Simulated scan of single mutants.
Amino acid sequence: MTVADEIQGLLRPGLRGLSPYGAPQLDVAVRLNTNENSYSVPDEVVRAVATALTSEIADLNRYPDRDAVKLRADLAAYLGHGIDAEWVYAANGSNEVQQQLLQAFGGPDRVVLGFGPAYSMHPLLAVGTATGWVDAGRGDDFGLTAAHAVDAVREHRPALTMLCSPNNPTGTALDLDVVRAVLAATEGLVVVDEAYAEFARPGTPSALSLLAEHPRLVVTRTMSKAFAFAGARVGYLVAHPAVIDAVQLVRLPYHLSALTQAAARAALAHTPVLLATVEAIKQQRDRIVATLRERGLRVADSDANFVLFETGGDQQAVWRALLERGVLVRDVGLKGWLRVTAGTPAETDAFLTAMEQQ
């Protein structure tokens, strides 16, 4: 028996044989596979973050503010909707936020419900917290109706229901009537993952507007996408303060470093500068959608910074052909479909040209 076999034998049964989450990190000219913001942090923000970090360094012998009070207040001010700091909780990316929700409200003999194809990290978070995972699926057009969602809730009686809006990997925002219907049908928490909310098409409402009337609603967001702050790892949830009190039962001590808090606050102080790229990215997204449809391919409607498109054949072969031309996109495991991040105009040019040549 090898050491690896021995260690596998010591793992919890639910983890044996699994692979960790991750997308290929390949050194290619055009990387459009992880939904990052392709635009670098502006110099003005770089200087502000550097100044904020410098001011914290001398005090690194002290623990950070474990409640991140100032950061939570800044996030609340950014969100609007009458939200104040008591309704906001921040952590190391929205993945950690969601993991802590499952630690607090999931666990053995409880179920978390999702509707795939959706964010592939959700079932892994369920496994990691020993929570049962149920994928109730979607329609052939990747849509999710209130009737289908309610039927699944009534059948499985989940402790948590995960809804993505915009949905990843399809990119389409969810009608708030679906969220309302699920809230009415379940006694558990309803978590709406809005990681890509800033990229939504005009008139697309946010689940934040439902918080005041629904204490079991949780909205999770991130600074990784629209804010071009993926390397800083800052995510947050918005929910009734009672939910936040419960989540803090499972958080690690001083989980959010003083440097992370300082960097995030400096970024939020320059919100207009950082979000200036959002409209440019949306233009490239819409260009990808329109061009691929003109070429006869099916493309999902997108409210995110990425596009799910039909390849017209074996998606793995198309993925490899694009890679050979220096363009890395994402194979999300849907037969005949691939996902591409909307980047700069030059990156879009490279992708569309590679698609035409393959």
Rank of each mutant, 00 (worst) to 15 (best):
Val3Tyr: 15
Asp5Glu: 14
Asp5Thr: 14
Leu10Gly: 12
Arg12Ala: 11
Pro13Cys: 08
Gly17Leu: 01
Pro20Gln: 07
Val28Glu: 03
Glu36Phe: 15
Ser38Asp: 15
Tyr39Leu: 00
Pro42Lys: 08
Pro42Asn: 11
Glu56Phe: 02
Arg66Ile: 13
Asp67Trp: 10
Leu75Met: 07
Ala85Ser: 09
Trp87Ala: 05
Val88Leu: 07
Asn95His: 15
Gln98Asn: 12
Gln98Leu: 13
Leu101Gln: 05
Gln103Glu: 14
Phe105Asp: 03
Gly107Val: 05
Val111Arg: 04
Gly116Leu: 06
Gly116Asp: 04
Ala118Val: 06
Met121Gly: 11
Ala126Val: 03
Arg154Phe: 07
Met162Thr: 12
Leu183Ile: 00
Thr186Asp: 03
Thr186Pro: 02
Ala195Trp: 12
Ala200Thr: 13
Arg201Val: 10
Gly203Asp: 01
Ala207Trp: 01
His214Asp: 08
Val218Phe: 01
Leu237Val: 11
Leu249Asn: 13
Pro253Arg: 08
Gln261Asn: 02
Ala267Leu: 14
His270Arg: 10
Leu274Gln: 08
Ala276Met: 06
Ile281Asn: 10
Lys282Gln: 12
Lys282Trp: 06
Lys282Val: 05
Arg285Phe: 07
Arg293Tyr: 07
Leu297Val: 06
Phe306Gly: 15
Gly312Leu: 02
Gln315Ile: 09
Leu328Arg: 09
Trp337Gly: 00
Leu338Ala: 02
Leu338Gly: 00
Val340Pro: 04
Ala342Met: 07
Thr344Ala: 00
Phe351Pro: 05
Met355His: 11
Gln357Cys: 08
Gln357Asn: 10
